[in-house]
Every structure is written in C-alpha cells, then in structure tokens.
Amino acid sequence: MSELADLLTYYNVIFLLKGMATTFALSALGCILGGLFGTALAVARLTTGPLTLPLRALALVFTEFFRRVPFLVTLMLCFFIFQFSGLDVSTFTVGCVTVVLIGTAFLAEIVRAGLQSVHPNQWHAAETMNFTLLQTIRYVVLPQAWTVILPPAFGFFILFIKDSALASQIGVIELTYVGKVFNNRGFSAGVSFGVILVAYFMLSYPLSRLGAKLEKKLGSSRTR
C-alpha cells in the first residue's frame, strides 16, 4: 500500500488524468468524426441505380475492410503510411486517424441498421411524393431512426475507450502508456497496471451506466 501512496504524487496524478483525458478524446473523436463519415457511407450504400454503383462498392469495401482488420494492424498501417509519406505528424495524430477510420466503418453499420429499422412504408410514402433520398433521410428517416442508432453508437464509444489502449503501442500518451511509464520508473507492474485498470473502470463504468439509462429512456419514448 505504501507503494501506491508513493505512486500517487501530485505530478503522477496529473499525468494519469492527462492520460485519461487523451483516452477519452481519442474515443470521442473516433465516434464523432466516425459518426459523420459513417452516416455518409450508410447513405451511400442506400443509393440505387448504376450511376452510384462505384460509390456503393467503395462504401461496402471500406466498411468490411476496417471491421475485419484488427485495431493493432490498422494502427501499424497508418503509422507506417505516415512514416513513409514523410509527413511529420505526432503519434497522437496517427492514433486519431486510426480511430476515425475504424469508427467510420463500425458506425456506418450501426447507422445503416438504424435507417433500415424505419418501416418501408415511410420510405415509400416519401418516394411517391418525390422526396430525394437525402430529403427522405433528413426529414423522415433520421428523425425516426436516431433513437435506434444512439444506444449502440454509445456502446461502441465505450468499447472504443478500451480498444484505444492499443494506441499506446506507437507511443500515444494515453492511459495505458501512462501505466507503462509508471512501470518503467520502477513501480511494480501490479501497482502500475492496477492503477490503470481502476482508471479505465472509472472512465468506462459511469458511461456504461449512462448508456443503459439512455437505452431504457429511448426505448420507452415515442419515435419522435
């Protein structure tokens, strides 16, 4: 226990909190930008006609690829691409690009499932009144689908908080990296990583409770 007290100095606690903030920021960015791009991909996949076929194919390949390649491998690909491109970017930027790519792929599927959950008769009614696809989605479908989209999207955000631990591998100074630094400074692995596990828990647990509440509330509310 005295080792734990030694570790929790003022500066170490600040360092730990910064790591938590970085972990949070990484996941939030991945979900916000990934949500925007993912929505675009989901809409692209709903287009019809031969003109937009390349768009549909591209969206399909993108979502399937980044959902079927491990986080670590995508991370290394991004890392080396930036390295060979000669662009001088921080490892944090590489981490951000990685989470946005992966977030886009996963959220595209969540959004697509949400859009498809809206009854076909709503799409038909809009179509017979000459709504364009974008008008249908904006005025009719998304307002009804967001209660279906939000709970799994929030769940993905919480999952991402833990998955982004891998960003420590390229030196992004997030929570897991902080644990490795503590360990390297001579604190025992048990205390170093124990503290980090507790910190993750403090980040993830309240959010998952919030997510459960959100799901319950949206589930019982009306569609609007």
């Binding site: 709503q122 809009a126 005025y139 009719v140």
Partner: peptide, 10 residues
C-alpha cells in the same frame, strides 16, 4: 395508402 404511411415524426 392502406396503412396511411403518415410520417410518424411529424
């Protein structure tokens, strides 16, 4: 339509 198909969000 038979099922009215009113937009539920409006």
């Amino acid at each position: 339509f038979q099922q009215y198909n009113l937009f539920q969000n409006l």
